[in-house]
Amino acid sequence: MSDESIRTPPSICGSAEIDLAHRLMRRHRECRIHRCAWKWVAYRTLVQYGRIAPQTLSPRERAHRRDIEFPTAPPSSRRTPGPDSVFPCGAPEPVTLHQVLDGLRELAHDMRSGDSREG
């Protein structure tokens, strides 16, 4: 007999994932799905398990079918959301994002410079 053994992590049942996804959807109710990774993952999980179905019609088409007027105001006349409503679940400050992008740009430049010296 060998002292080596194979260990596998315990499996988590699907209902645990579904319960967590439901809690996340409730917690991030104010968030926009395209701006909040938590809500997006929860939404995709619920779609995967068949708990919700993605919309097949655009908001404009849904409004038309219900005889609801769809807003057509130009973007300049709409209220600009404040910083809290843009990223309601929290996000880094724009300065931080710029620093990350600058760092990536420098890294890419260094990598390109290094490749040309080696060739």
Results as ranks from 00 to 15, higher is better:
residue 25 M to R: 06
residue 25 M to V: 15
residue 25 M to L: 15
residue 25 M to A: 11
residue 27 R to G: 09
residue 28 H to M: 09
residue 29 R to N: 12
residue 31 C to K: 01
residue 31 C to A: 11
residue 31 C to M: 00
residue 32 R to I: 10
residue 32 R to S: 14
residue 33 I to D: 05
residue 33 I to P: 00
residue 33 I to Q: 09
residue 34 H to I: 09
residue 34 H to Q: 14
residue 36 C to V: 00
residue 37 A to M: 05
residue 37 A to L: 10
residue 37 A to R: 10
residue 37 A to F: 05
residue 38 W to Y: 09
residue 39 K to S: 10
residue 40 W to G: 04
residue 42 A to D: 09
residue 42 A to L: 01
residue 43 Y to H: 14
residue 44 R to K: 15
residue 44 R to H: 08
residue 45 T to W: 05
residue 45 T to N: 01
residue 46 L to C: 11
residue 46 L to W: 06
residue 47 V to R: 03
residue 47 V to W: 06
residue 48 Q to L: 15
residue 49 Y to K: 03
residue 50 G to R: 14
residue 51 R to T: 07
residue 52 I to S: 03
residue 52 I to P: 10
residue 53 A to Y: 04
residue 53 A to F: 13
residue 54 P to N: 08
residue 54 P to W: 10
residue 54 P to L: 02
residue 57 L to P: 00
residue 57 L to S: 15
residue 57 L to Y: 14
residue 57 L to D: 15
residue 58 S to L: 15
residue 59 P to D: 07
residue 60 R to E: 03
residue 60 R to D: 00
residue 61 E to W: 09
residue 61 E to I: 12
residue 62 R to S: 06
residue 64 H to R: 11
residue 65 R to Q: 14
residue 65 R to I: 05
residue 66 R to I: 02
residue 68 I to P: 01
residue 68 I to S: 04
residue 68 I to D: 00
residue 70 F to W: 11
residue 70 F to S: 08
residue 71 P to F: 01
residue 72 T to N: 04
residue 72 T to F: 03
residue 73 A to N: 03
residue 73 A to G: 06
residue 73 A to M: 08
residue 75 P to N: 04
residue 76 S to M: 05
residue 77 S to E: 12
residue 77 S to C: 05
